[in-house]
Simulated scan of single mutants.
Amino acid sequence: MKVLIIEDEISASENLAYLLGNIDETIEVVEVLDSVKASVAYFGQPRDIDLVFSDIHLADGLSFEIFDQVKIDSPIIFTTAYDQYTLKAFKLNSIDYLLKPIDEEELSASLKQFKGQVKREGLVDDQVTGLLNLIKTQNKTYKTTFLVSLRDELIPLPIDQLAYCYIDTGVVKAKTRNNQIYSLDKKLEDVENELNPEIFCRVNRQFIICKNAISNIKYYFGGKLIVNVLPPFEERIIISKAKAPEFKKWMDS
């Protein structure tokens, strides 16, 4: 079986080649490529490769960029150090992966699974697009401060001081944990995109709430929820029946 390794860490590629040889002496590592550029050039010509092992982060970019530029018909197993959330997305996209550091038993099981399938194809366009978007989302950075106006000054408002943001007579305002209120020269949609969704949730059209600012949640009629926050807000913050399951899942994460 002819195998190609795409990996920019020499020790990692040597270890993978060693493990493959231990598992099956008939496996031939025909090439080790260390970059997107080298891989695109290599697959610019027809290649007889049975299986590709590819790391995600390479010296000059993400390995998914390779498959976005050239067609690779060989099946691919990714080697990755990503967290469990991302790995679930790999599974949903029917992508094989091995978590680093690579375990010989897991590698052996993956090879057996590969050999046991009559036919396997490379990545299709939808998978490439989906995984590229996934990685970009995982690598996204979020705001650590908002620059806000206070009388005749501009002051930095640390995000970790935010309790919630809301719309008040068309103006987006932010309330801090110590009950200070500031106006934000932004749309609430823009604020939502700039905050970490693991910490902040857009609960309805008017509110974005920090998880740590929620004191309790009460059931409301029709399957809705009422969220109580600290500092308290003078009006009810209501979550619709449709959004309630997603909100509870976010709170329980």
Rank of each mutant, 00 (worst) to 15 (best):
T145F: 12
F146W: 01
S149E: 14
R151H: 13
R151Y: 09
R151K: 10
E153Q: 13
P156C: 12
L157C: 14
L162P: 01
A163T: 02
Y164D: 05
C165Y: 01
G170A: 02
V171K: 15
V171Q: 11
V172Q: 00
K173W: 05
A174D: 01
A174F: 08
K175M: 14
R177M: 12
N178H: 14
N179M: 08
S183V: 07
S183N: 11
K186F: 10
L188E: 06
L188P: 03
L188I: 15
E189S: 14
D190I: 08
D190R: 09
D190P: 03
V191E: 02
N193E: 10
N193A: 15
I199T: 04
F200M: 03
C201Y: 14
C201K: 04
C201T: 02
R205V: 05
Q206I: 07
Q206Y: 09
F207Y: 15
I209N: 00
K211S: 12
S215M: 08
I217G: 01
K218Q: 14
Y220T: 02
G223N: 09
I226K: 14
V227W: 02
N228F: 07
P231H: 14
F233H: 12
F233T: 05
E234Q: 13
E234F: 11
E235I: 09
R236K: 15
R236W: 11
I237K: 05
I238W: 06
